[in-house]
Design a binder for these strands. Structure first.
Lengths: 234, 234
DNA sequence: TAGATTGTTAATCGATTAACAATC
DNA sequence: TAGATTGTTAATCGATTAACAATC
């Protein structure tokens, strides 16, 4: 059921480029749409065409992790979804801590897309006394002092930073101190972390700058992947 | 003043890789922090060290666009900031339209980081009659029917999509129809656009998946750039 | 001058693509 | 069987890095 053809999933032989992992997420998202549309199988060609990649790239990406397809047939959507979720680690639930409950933080507390992929914000933290003790979008807001206790009892391994830039490094340090292993940072600032803690940064202004560059310099930017359409710039 | 050494900025000879433009934004952000800290000059070495790149990469990236440094000295922060802003197109104001005023849309309407870099959301659109006509974070919410008029009178060239996945393609089509040239899409779905319209996609669940992969497969992911720290994964 | 640092070239490294035997 | 599509290898392409003359 979980290993349809007896191949191991999620145990890459060597190092996996970040770009590959990112495309894996795109394949997963696309597969979930295909299933919702009633499709049973797909192919590297179809997947690539929709996302703007070559079929060879799709197959190569998947080959990092195992053999998931059937020659002559393609890929069974439900099987490939299960395999990719296992690889990405989203076949399990990830309880998370949110630091910073401003505009953006509140929006993220209510964002449905997280839960659908296995992520759940179980506690929020803020230094504003007015917010402490309140419940926002069903999530309790605590003082940062409670971080050690809450992370321990909830086995929290991932954190989100949505504080102002000036407070981001301190927030990261607090998360690291309680053993958090991965941080999604929305503050527009470079954060320094120990080697063993993973960081993904999302700077919304920077995303817009990529767009203004492309629009202001029409055609002088090298299209890195997608022909007509794309998502998540790679 | 704007061209300190008589070199052209923002006119790359050939095609510029997307990754280069992304790093340009990181350099800009770092330079702005340096200036705030009172630094007058910096070097490719310092810039690279903080961001986790080699000094050669920093110099090569900048060399796509001109000569901005002084041998033996380095880069004057204020000059380089001006040059990069010109390259990215953020030396001008970008009025924008926001489609979708849910949780995320509202948060983005109030996000200060946009304005600081020259982006301003001047109008929002939603299909919910309860929201139409209201003013959120100082931004008027209109019916989509008003899109052509509002984009024309405000010379809007960039749009943000923050609607549910199922409505995203239609929202994109509407923006394209009124001549928008660049779209920042937050809906977790692949969007198809004509060649000439630029797209940047931000899928928050996918960002978290990159993190869960790294945490669940500790050490088997190839660190693409930064050694100890980094941001905006490239 | 000596020291520092740029811009750029050539070498290296890594990622993408084309092609094809194996398979269903 | 013929047709389709995989997994994988080798070839191509592109991006990063090291090295260094030129410059301040």
């Amino acid at each position: 059921m979980s290993d349809p053809k007896g191949k191991a999933a999620g145990s890459p032989d060597g190092a996996v480029p970040k770009a590959v992992v990112n495309r894996l997420s795109l394949y997963l998202r696309e597969l979930q749409h295909l299933v919702r549309d009633g499709r049973e199988t797909t192919s590297s060609n179809q997947l690539g065409r929709v996302l703007g990649f070559t079929d060879a790239q799709v197959r190569k990406d998947l080959a990092y992790f195992g053999h998931f397809g059937y020659p002559g047939i393609g890929y069974r959507c439900d099987e490939l979804i299960r395999a990719i979720r296992k690889i990405l680690g989203t076949n399990q639930q990830w309880p998370m801590a949110m630091v910073g409950v401003g505009n953006l933080g509140r929006a993220l507390l209510g964002y449905k897309g997280f839960q659908q992929q296995g992520f759940r914000i179980v506690a929020a933290f803020d230094s504003d006394p007015h917010k402490m003790g309140s419940v926002i979008e069903g999530v309790q807001v605590y003082h940062l002092d409670s971080l050690p206790e809450i992370t321990a009892t909830n086995r929290i391994r991932l954190g989100i930073i949505a504080v102002p830039a000036a407070a981001a490094q301190a927030a990261a340090d607090s998360l690291v101190a309680v053993g958090v292993e991965g941080i999604l940072n929305f503050a527009p600032v470079t954060i320094a972390l120990p080697e063993h803690v993973n960081l993904v940064g999302v700077d919304l202004a920077i995303e817009l700058e990529q767009l203004s560059f492309a629009v202001a310099n029409r055609g002088s930017a090298k299209s890195e992947s997608a022909p007509k359409h794309s998502n998540e710039m790679d």
